[in-house]
Design a protein around this nucleic acid. Sequence first.
DNA 1: AAGACGAAAGTGGTTGA
DNA 2: TCAACAACTTTCGTCTT
Length: 318
Amino acid sequence: MGRKKEKAKERIKLRCPDCGSVKIIFDYSRGEAYCLECGLTFEVPDVAFHTREWREFEGEDFLKRRGGDSITTPIHARQAESKIDKSDITKLPRRIREEFMKISSWEQRLDSAWERNIKYALMEIGRIAEILELPEYVRDEAVKLYKMAAKRKLIRGRSIHSAAAAVLYAACRMYRIPKTLDEMAKAIEDLSKSIKVTKKEIGKVYKFILRELGIKMIPVDPRDFIERIANSLGLSEKVIDKAKEIIDKAEEAGAIFGKGPIGVAAAAVYIASLYCNEKRTQREVANAANVTEVTVRNRYKEIVEALGLEEEIEKLES
DNA sequence: AAGACGAAAGTGGTTGA
DNA sequence: TCAACAACTTTCGTCTT
């Protein structure tokens, strides 16, 4: 234990005031620490090295005592919580309380943590939006949502990246830009291999934020996915129109309700490709839509049945 | 060999008692 | 909170072209 002066650099048990990561390296030659996650460099109070207690506070045990925020959960699923809670202080032994006051003043200087947090989040939203090639107005909408959510403390206890993806996803839904939770998760993966955010987590945060902000979202329209699927298969405008027409009819016939919109879109494209003499296999369509062949098949069957297209399609095959 | 089709079992999420 | 449920996936076998 104690200070390892001989080392040039050492990993220390601090949280990054910006992104909340615990991957903090202290550089002795420069007398400051930097975050491996977001690159922020910052001064560390001496007390962090001179007292064992400090290490215990910010260490695993302390985090656990503060309420279930176990170190075993992924680092990135947590967020900086650098403000020191008064109620915690009173529970601590007096001996260390004065140390805490010193730290408190250090924290005070980082009181802009909230703002820096937002700044970092907005940056990440921008980066994810860029990867997904989202238009600017979508990013702006996402930023607006993030700020609203942050103001109401909805981001607390969630990772910045899951929240960033969630608001972007919400913005896409608002503008009917066809993006899936899967793509959001993958974009984050592309952003940094060390950040792990699952589709599930993003979905959870998305739902939570919408509910808390009282935003109602209309269901995803399968038509929104048609162009994407058709384009990636090199299909013509004609197929796209036909596919939309098929969905219109299938919707009227009630063959679509409750089904996954992407699977529906994929089946419509498959059927339309038959009609327009630009046939693609079920496998090709399924791959383009990121669903399985079986799903395409099932939707296909249902739609054909509901619209009574069996004979027409048989004719097409000859 | 490739494509279409379907049966069966499994997964992860939702819903309602 | 648990069990039933629907959508979807995975896997695999069969049939057709």
